[in-house]
Amino acid sequence: MKQLLAVDWGTSSLRGALLDSEGRVLKERSFPRGILTVASGDFATVFEACFAHWIGATGTFCLISGMAGSKQGWLEAPYCACPAGFDEVASQLAWVKAGRIAIVPGLSCEHEGIPDVMRGEETQVLGALQLLGLQDGLLILPGTHSKWVSVRGGRIEDFSTRMTGEFYALLRQHSLLARSMPDTDGEVDWAAFDEGVALALRGAGLLQTAFSVRTLSLFGRMAAARLPSYLSGLVIGEEIRARDLPGGTKVVLIGAELLTERYERALQQRQAVVQRLGAEATWRGLWTLAQTIHPSWDA
């Protein structure tokens, strides 16, 4: 392999990085062409328009993670059951073009007979293990649907999903609480955010604490501009409150900087020890998978 085209194709965005044979990022590109913007049957056309100049080079192999492997994506990549590591994931790729372009499968697990799934986060987690030299640990991937991932022996053993980001959006935009807040979030008010986290951690649950957004506004105890940050603290704090997290627990956060910064602040109220990673986890995960596969690079 001379180069790897590593692609993260999600619901709302399409990102790619060209990596050399040592896994170093040579170039990166990003497009607002998430799978929801692509008509059925047009995925190959969009991919070519974005990356033809990279994938066309001799010796370039492409691995794609994320929602491109969903039923609504380019080619469905069936879920790989946990526990799973690089070997299990690499053995269940969905090949768009044999030997040249493949989609990484998502992962599945069950809790009390109820299935849970992820797509894209598995690649980030496996990449983080490589970057940090970890074999065991707890990793959190904040987002619309946050993932809490347990790793043992270098394999993803178990995970669970929290709809934190989606609940924030619903409350922020479509509930009575929205009437108390400005149209846009504005800059983060960290004091208000911390106050929301603190109430969530000592409260009886989001169904009760969320109403404080309304009453703090009603009695003039918090300015409207501060309320979005306060609500963000409430929902993130609720996510963390619901987990058994002894003081001193080591946590790896993976995601966008502003979002992982919020989670780090919230986790510090539980005395957790936090490390943060960004896009580099995705690229390292895809690069390490490419080394695991050993495909016919000249196909």
Rank of each mutant, 00 (worst) to 15 (best):
I293L: 15
L259F: 09
L258K: 00
A256Y: 07
L132T: 10
H294V: 11
D185T: 05
G196D: 08
M181A: 07
G205D: 07
G133S: 10
V149Q: 06
L286K: 14
I140V: 15
G34Q: 12
S91E: 07
A169S: 10
Q291T: 02
I103A: 09
S229T: 04
S13P: 14
R179P: 00
H111P: 04
V213Q: 12
D189N: 14
K250P: 05
R179V: 00
T288M: 15
L216R: 10
G278K: 04
L177K: 07
E166G: 02
A17W: 14
S65M: 07
K250D: 14
L75P: 06
P32C: 11
L138G: 08
A272N: 03
F86P: 03
G233C: 04
W297D: 11
D20F: 01
A224R: 12
W287N: 06
G154R: 02
A224N: 07
G154P: 06
F86E: 13
T161Q: 05
L126F: 07
H294F: 05
D20P: 03
V151E: 01
L277H: 10
Y79A: 09
A225S: 08
G278Q: 08
L177H: 08
A84C: 11
S65W: 09
D42W: 01
E257G: 12
S40Q: 14
E112H: 13
A266R: 00
S21T: 03
A191H: 06
E48M: 05
G154C: 10
M163D: 07
W148K: 13
D87N: 07
Q72A: 12
E28V: 00
